[in-house]
Each structure stands twice: as C-alpha cells, then as structure tokens.
Design a protein around this nucleic acid. Sequence first.
DNA 1: TCAAGCTATTATACTATTATAAGTGTCAAG
DNA 2: CTTGACACTTATAATAGTATAATAGCTTGA
Lengths: 344, 344
Amino acid sequence: MARSEDGGEKKPLERLGVREIAKRVGVAPMTVSRVLSNPDMVAPATRAKVLEAIEAAGFVPNRLASSMKGNGRMIGTVVPPLINSGIAEQVQGMSDECQQGGYSMLLVQGEFTTEAEEASIRTLLGWRPAGMILQSFVQSEVARQLLVSSGAPVVEISEIKGRQPIDMVVGVSNFETAYAMTMHLVAKGYKRIGFVSTPIHGNDRLQQRRTGYHAALSELGIENHASMEVEVPITAAGGAEALATLTERHADIDAIFFSSDTLAIGAVQECHRRGWAIPDRIGIAGYGDMDLAAQLYPPLTTVKVNRYEMGRRAVRQLLDRLGGKQKLATITSLGFEIVDRESA
Amino acid sequence: MARSEDGGEKKPLERLGVREIAKRVGVAPMTVSRVLSNPDMVAPATRAKVLEAIEAAGFVPNRLASSMKGNGRMIGTVVPPLINSGIAEQVQGMSDECQQGGYSMLLVQGEFTTEAEEASIRTLLGWRPAGMILQSFVQSEVARQLLVSSGAPVVEISEIKGRQPIDMVVGVSNFETAYAMTMHLVAKGYKRIGFVSTPIHGNDRLQQRRTGYHAALSELGIENHASMEVEVPITAAGGAEALATLTERHADIDAIFFSSDTLAIGAVQECHRRGWAIPDRIGIAGYGDMDLAAQLYPPLTTVKVNRYEMGRRAVRQLLDRLGGKQKLATITSLGFEIVDRESA
DNA sequence: TCAAGCTATTATACTATTATAAGTGTCAAG
DNA sequence: CTTGACACTTATAATAGTATAATAGCTTGA
C-alpha cells in the first residue's frame, strides 16, 4: 500500500475531519461534533479552543457523514423546465426558505412523463433527503410507493383537490381560478371566449383550469366548441400562434384566456403586429401575473398566484413536520386574485 | 433498548440496504454493490437474481454512503436569483447535462455579497461535491481558499478574462459583446447612446459590459457622460424607469443599450405607453436574446448569448475532468451574436 | 498431477460523523 | 468523609456502501 518511507508509520496526509481537529485541540472527536451541533453542551473554554482550530484549519464538516446518522438536511425537489414556466419564482421561494432553515436543496428537472418522473424521484431518494417537494400529483404508482416507504415527508405543489395526496399538498384550486377568470371575462361582456394552454396531458393543474373554464361557460349557458381550445408550447411564439389559430377558426372570438402569462404576452405582441386593438378587437387574459404582466402595454389582465410563496410554504410544511410540529395541515390552499387590468 | 419480546434477538426491522438484499439473495454485500456499479464483474446468473431482489424490494441505493468512499456524484452550484435574470436557462443547461452524466445538482441561491457567497460555498462544500460551478468570479479570498483546498474541480461561469480563475472558466467576453453592440448601434446611425444595467457592484460581467460600451464610444470619439448611465433593479419596471430617467436627463438620447432583455422589454412597453415610435423616436437594444425578444413588437435587437449551452459546457468541463480527461481547456469561450432586429 | 492463470465471489476494513452509554471530575449537602 | 447531583467529556458502536486483498473454484498447459 505504498507505505512510503517518510520515517513515520501511517501519515496518509491526515484528512481534515472532526478527528483531526480533535487531535489538534486535544479533545475527543465527539466534543468537536458537539461544538458544531450542540454548542451549549460544551464548556465555553473548550468550545473556544475548538472553534479556533476549526477556523484555523478551514474545516467544513462533512454533511454526508452526519446525514448517514439520520440528520439529513437536504430537501429534494423535481421541477418542470424552468424557462418561461413561472416555476423559477417557486424555486426561489423554496430555496430561500430552505436556506433560512439550514437546509440544502437538491434539484432535478424532469419532464411530466411517468418514466422520467420515476427516474427523478429515484435519484433524489438515493440521497436520503429529509423531505421531498414534487410538482403536480405524482403519476407513477411505483414512484408513489417509493416515496411512501422512504418515510420522508412529501409536499406536492399541485391542484389542491382531486386525488389523494401522498402526504401534504400546497397549492391553489386551479379550477376556482379558471372559473373565476372565465366568469370575470363574461361579466366584462365577452361572449366568445377561447382557451389556450400548454400541453395538458398528465398535468392536473392544467386539467383543472380547463375544467373551470368549461364549468363557468356551461353554467352561463354559453356553448363551447372544442375547436375554441388549443394547446401550444410554453413560449411567446406559442401564444402568438394560438391567437392566429383560434381567430382563424372563429373570426368572432372576442377574448382568449391563456393558461400562462408567457403565452398571453406572446399573443399581445401578435395583436400589435396585426394592428389589432386590445381589448377592443380582442381581449387577452393570462395566468400567473409574472413581473412583466403589469408593465405590459396594455397591462395584462391575469390570475395572480403567488408562486414564490407557494415554494416557501411547501418547504415550511416540510420543516414544520421535521421539527415535530403537531396538527399540520394536510392541505394548504393559497389564495388567488383576478387582477383586472386593461388587456381584457 | 426496548428489546421487545418478539421471540427473536435482534430484528430492528432490517433496514433496506445492500446487506439486506445480499442476505435475501444469499450472496455477499459486495456482490450486490458490484451489480449496481460494475455489473460486468458479476456472473450473469447472479446478477439476474440480485436485480430481481432489488426490484422486488424497491431498494434505492444510498448515495450518501457511496459518496463517502469518494464516489460522489453531486455537482454543487451557487446562482443569483432566478427570476428575470436569464439564469434559469443556464440552470436548465446544467441540470440537463448533470442528469445525462448521472450526477445530481445541489443548488444554492445566493446574493453577490462576499459573506453570502462564502456561506453558500461553505454549505455546498459540506456535501463534498464532485465539482462546483460558480457564477462570476469568486470574490471572497477565504472562499477561494476553501474551494482550492477542497480539491474539487471548479468552473466559474463568468467573464472570460480578468482575474486568475480558481480552476476553469466558461463564458463569453462581456467586453466584446458590449463593444460589438455599441459599435453596431453607432453604425446604425445612433449618436447619443445611453447605457442601463442592473447593479454593477461586485459583478464583473456587468463591469465588463460597461467597459466595452465605454471603449467603443471613446474609440469613436463620442463623448460620454456618466449621466447617460443608470442602474436599476432587474425588472420590467426597472427598464421603464430607466428609460424615463435617461430621456428626462438627456432629451437628445436616441438609443439605449440595456444590459438585460428584461430591462429592454420593460422600456419598449414604456415607449408604447408614451406613443414613442421604436426605433424612430428611440432605439432599444437588449442583452440575452430571451425567448420573448424575437416575438416582441417590435422585435428586439439584442446580444445573443447561449446561456443554456453555457450551463451545459460548465458541467461538461467538470465531468471531463472527473473522467480523467487530459489537456482540458482552462478557458472556454462561447461565441455570441448581435441579433439585429427592428428595435434599434 | 501440480502449479499457474483465470473468473467469480467473499471478508475485512475503511470513509466521517454522531447517538448512546459510560466515565471523569467537582461541588455541596448529609 | 462519603454520597449524590451535576456538568462536562470520552469510548464505543453504528450509519451504508465499496476498495482492497484474500479465497474458492475451475480450466489449462507442462
């Protein structure tokens, strides 16, 4: 084993760890460990010496090892692509709250397919996270089983009603939001309202939005054709394309409800290009109230959902549970607002 | 220790691990381990039995334990706030490449302050990541020292020239990009060009962009006042505000170069509100070529930097190094394009 | 027929931290 | 002068996977 003759017996460069720090200070490793996690249990004088040595050595305790003893301080999360989706706000919320609570965030981007979901969850569970945050309800039964048997608390950021959550849910009623926006548009005098969303398959949030839109229309006795709905990719170009498609199919459409601000903003640009007056020629409504929505010309009427707060709350739920808090809400419903601006 | 009388001696529920799987199959733990990491070293028959047992038990190997033996498969990264910054694209690139390489991504959001940076890096190093990706050059000397002594390869996604990198750099010459855009604007006939950026302090990329802008102007003998530059927060409202401020200070400003598309897009909306024709009344140029830029009305002239690719390349560098590849580039410079559209 | 050569497998020990239990020492009360 | 209580510290073992060396079993060639 290359016992190089450097005179001594065993000096493999002495990796920096609690052991090495302990040796330098002249205490037991356990004492060093306590200085890091339970400083009050160590005599002030000892503590000072240990801290000094830690500082001097530039020692950063190995969290892998402590996690193995069940003190994991890592939250795992699977999110859809960050670009344009408004998920970035949520991730920021999660990250901020994690950091505040002393946790690290392990992030995996995954598609909404069953296999990808399963693979992502498997990867994360491999790190034995203290908690997991998932988007939308988990589809794969295998993945659900893995999550349950992992024992970690799980928050699904999702539609708040529908399937049985694995553990906890944080979200809004997407049905309600879409229902409310559709009602709002009708109240403003629109009669032929189109609906545009990003691919709905496997995304219960989008499904609920569409259902809410349908519910409002049918409740008001407004007939609705499937041809007044389109799915497009989540890009500004997608929004523009949807506007073109719908108004070509139905020249009398007087408003379009987009399931995402990104799409709505794209549509607004397309209207400018065509010289169509908003909202006179056509009303445009979005979803999400992203930063640009209020600054847009004309300002965008949209559904405001506090995604940053959603992220925070999801982590908070996890940390509360980990902290042993009793009587935790299983379902946390955040409110929403219909922000009535000028685009519809 | 609550040795509950269940007849047997020690059956603490037998946590699921290689040991337990091994016992069930009737092989040594090491064999199970090899099935997972070096399947070729195990006889096909044995391998099949082990895989079956793993499947049946829903066993997910503990990566914490394997990481402790130096097989860490985690990349740590510190990023600025994701919202509006175009960092989301980069994170997506990193994430995709990590996943492809079988690595997980540990993400910390941190501000650009020295203390926050140091804290974030410390946190990440605690997880003993196989590699680190940082934004901009690391300011804190202590943090640099920690990184170096951690032994992990480090990529700084940053301005590619300037300070000595800790290890490797991936990026573009922000100086060049800004210089090129400024030259481009002058070539198009603009004479009084303002410059707007988000807070520059501590961000060498922004510093370089401003320097490039200065260099181009002075090379052309165009005088430039500090009053033609503003710093605003990275929001659409910030862009609108900057436009208002600059045109109020200097009524004769005929173009503004924004250090971010988000700002430029906000400014374009402000122009619409004021009824100012773009580019006739004023030219607007952005930076980043975000998705919306091409769809904007009018389409945004901007600097195209492939942020997604930057993220990928950063991870690639790390993985190449970890894979033992020799002669790795220390500096990877990605190209850029001046995308000439109609806003300027 | 025995040693060498090979493959497949196993036993041991190690990674860094920490829960737990056991062990010091000091002080005050009995 | 002992006993108990208390504050602090240490020794041991455990977490789960895997590098390493050792071993078993088999074939092959001399």
